[in-house]
Nucleic acid binder design. Structure first.
Lengths: 223, 223
DNA sequence: GTAAGAATATGAGATATCTCTTATTATGAG
DNA sequence: CTCATAATAAGAGATATCTCATATTCTTAC
């Protein structure tokens, strides 16, 4: 992890202005943090001292259960907050946040800004929208996970994450995200290959029958 | 459904003041709606015209999936909002909201209040807290549902809903809530009875070994 | 380069959960 | 009171998913 200083910091802030998110000047105590792939931005169970706003990169929210299972609750992308739960609540079980790629965020010290942020309409309105989407997405994921087998949820996930027709997510990550065992994920991926929905090329999977995947995926969505 | 008028309305508003939730007078266009048990407060897929605030009663949020399965996403209790998603987002798939008991809520016409509400710090701050809890709860439910079998989740649910040691929820409701089949729920309830965790008395279940249930339930919580 | 750890792969057997079917027992509307 | 519907109950067989064990590649740090 690196904290930008001096000219580097000044330049980054200048090129990534976030003044529009607040109705008061935010830069005085603001820091710029850069995390490398696999760095922990927040460690599970450890209350963070900052409210983060992601400018560049991607991260994952993890929780570890008492039976040892790990859930990847969600991904965090650019223009999203990290640590907002702790800003709002004094008592909160802090989840672990891990950078998936190099991730640069603004870090606002909670001690300095908490009071001001909670009185800032502009900030609150945006945060409200962000949280409502988060709640909606979690509700969707929850009900889908109970109502549909992996086949449907994986088809959806493949279509969402494939890059130019090629799916190449890490199996372990996907297991944690979709909440199934490694073994079962491979079973279903193999089925997709046998049915020629996917073609396995080295360690990647190319989408071969887009429509077949699409019809599996579309039944999970509520529109 | 009944809309309070005249003296009845005046009196109800007087006895259940919610002025503290807003920084501007809210009563002019506010209505008071009373729903009976099983009434639909909002129908699935139908955008509501009001932001509701529950004063008395209890309701359920349902979503119907394309494969016919129904999920009971969550319960709504007193002092909670209904319709806040539609207030915030122009595009949103509206879930169905059904009263579990007689439910009385304040109904704020969105057309009149939307703009003002989205500029009201007091309102936004409370809504932010409400939504953050909602998101957190959904995330917890989601990851628990994937990480633990029904046995654990049901034990937790029984302890949470039992009234003076007696569990008497409707099986159908519980199935939708915990996302399992009716058949499977009965299997596990029978197991609990065979193991003497519960005693079946008529159609109710009395908790007989509190500690056994508790040790099943406690492994799902993150503290 | 090599050794250790990560990631991929696959078999075999167990179990959690589902679907479909068929009864029996409440409960509410007329 | 009575019929229709909701709720409870349970068997039997299917399937979605898990656990454990074992191999085979890749990566990566030294």
């Amino acid at each position: 992890m690196e904290i930008y200083k001096g000219e580097k910091k000044r330049k980054f802030i200048e090129e990534n202005a976030i003044g529009h998110l607040f109705s008061f000047p935010i830069e005085e105590y603001m820091e710029v943090h850069e995390y490398r792939r696999d760095d922990w931005i927040i460690q599970e169970g450890m209350r963070p001292n900052y409210l983060f706003y992601v400018i560049e990169g991607k991260a994952k929210i993890y929780i570890t259960h008492q039976n040892g299972k790990v859930s990847l609750i969600n991904f965090i992308n650019e223009s999203e907050y990290i640590g907002e739960m702790e800003l709002l609540h004094d008592v909160y079980y802090t989840k672990g946040i891990q950078a998936t790629t190099k991730t640069i965020c603004f870090a606002l010290p909670i001690t300095h800004y908490r009071k001001k942020l909670l009185e800032d309409t502009k900030f609150l309105r945006e945060l409200t929208k962000f949280l409502s989407l988060k709640a909606t997405n979690m509700a969707a994921k929850y009900s889908q996970s109970l109502a549909f087998p992996l086949e449907n949820r994986l088809a959806d996930f493949i279509l969402q994450t494939a890059d130019r027709g090629v799916y190449k997510e890490k199996h372990v990550t996907v297991c944690d995200y979709l909440g199934v065992s490694y073994r079962h994920l491979l079973y279903i991926l193999n089925q997709f290959c046998e049915k020629r929905y996917l073609l396995k090329v080295g360690r990647n999977y190319e989408i071969y029958q887009y429509d077949a995947l699409h019809s599996l995926a579309k039944v999970i969505e509520n529109k």
